[in-house]
Simulated assay, not measured.
Amino acid sequence: MIKTSGILTTSAALATAGALALGSSQPAQAEVSANIGVVSSYFFRGFSESDGGAAVQGGLDYEAESGFYAGTWASNVDFGDSTSYELDLYLGFGGELGEGVGYDVGYIYYAYPDAPGSADFGEIYGELSFGMFSVGAAYVVNDSSESALVNDDLYYYAGLGFDLVDDYSMGFLVGRTAFDDSAREDYTHYTGSLAKATDSLGEFSFNLEYEDTFDKDLKAWVGWTLGF
C-alpha cells in the first residue's frame, strides 16, 4: 500500500502518493511487494503530518490470488511533541464486481508508538471504482484518549485519475471529513497531482493541497515512490 491524501490505496490498485488514480483489480497471483518513497511534506486529508517537513516512507504488502491483502506502512511525522513516526497495519479484500466495477474493503489501524499519550485509532474503509472514477469512505471504529479522530468520525471522497502521454498521469480528489461531535468543524479538502512514471527509477509527482476551513492556503509538495 502507498498512502494518498484519502485513505490507503492497495498495491492491487497501485497509485503513488501523488497519482491518486484509485481503483481495484484482482492480482494475478499471490505475491509479496514493497514500496519506498520520499515526499517534501507528508499530507493526509488536507494537512501536513510532518509539519511541512520532508518524510521518508515505505511499506510491505502481501496479496493473495483471492483478492485478500495485508500489510504495513510507515512514515516519520511531526506533531510538535515527541511523536516521531506513524506505523499503519491493514488488511482487506479487493477485486472486480463485473462490468468494470472494482471494489476494495478493509480495516486499517493507525499507530503512533512513541506518542506521549495513546494516539492510535482504527478505521474500516470501502471504495468502488469504475474506469477513471472512484468513490470511497472510511469510518472510525476504535480510538484512544489522544487520537486525532474518534469513534464515528467519517471521511468520504471522490477521485478521478487518468493517463496522459509519455507515462504522465493526472489525479484529482475531493474529500470531506465529518466529525461526530459539533465541537469540531467539518471540512473539505482538495488534492491535485501530476505524476511521471519511469521504467526503473519509480514515479515522480507534483501535488497541490487545499482545505477550505482552517488556514485555507494552497500548498504544494513533491514526491518520489518506487515499488519492487
Rank of each mutant, 00 (worst) to 15 (best):
T4E: 07
I7V: 14
S11Q: 13
A12T: 15
A13Q: 13
L14G: 08
A17S: 15
G18S: 10
A19S: 15
A19C: 05
A21V: 06
S25G: 14
S25W: 02
A28P: 06
Q29L: 10
Q29M: 12
A30D: 13
A30C: 04
E31C: 08
G37S: 13
V39W: 00
V39S: 00
F43K: 02
F44S: 05
F44C: 04
R45D: 00
E49Q: 12
G52R: 08
A55V: 04
A55P: 01
V56T: 11
V56A: 09
G59D: 01
L60Y: 03
D61T: 04
Y62R: 12
E63V: 03
E65K: 13
A70Y: 03
W73Q: 03
W73R: 02
S82N: 12
T83R: 05
S84K: 13
E86R: 02
D88N: 14
L89I: 03
L89C: 00
F93A: 08
G94V: 03
G94M: 04
G94K: 02
E96H: 04
G98D: 08
E99Y: 10
G100C: 09
G100R: 09
G100Y: 09
G100S: 10
V101Y: 07
G102V: 06
Y103W: 12
G106H: 03
I108E: 03
Y110Q: 02
Y110R: 03
A115D: 07
S118A: 15
D120K: 06
F121Y: 15
F121R: 01
I124Q: 10
I124Y: 12
I124W: 11
Y125G: 02
S129P: 11
S134F: 03
S134D: 07
A137C: 13
A138R: 06
N142R: 14
S145Y: 08
L149K: 04
V150S: 15
D153H: 09
L154W: 10
Y155M: 05
Y155I: 05
Y156I: 05
G159I: 02
L160P: 00
D163G: 15
D163R: 05
L164C: 13
D166P: 06
G171I: 02
G171K: 02
F172G: 12
L173M: 14
T177S: 12
A178V: 14
F179C: 08
D180R: 14
D180Q: 14
D181N: 14
E185Q: 15
Y187T: 09
Y190P: 07
A195H: 00
K196C: 01
K196H: 15
D199V: 05
L201I: 10
G202I: 00
F206M: 12
N207S: 15
N207C: 09
E209C: 05
Y210W: 15
E211P: 03
D212E: 10
D212G: 11
F214V: 12
D215Y: 10
L218N: 13
W221N: 13
W224L: 08
T225N: 15
G227N: 09
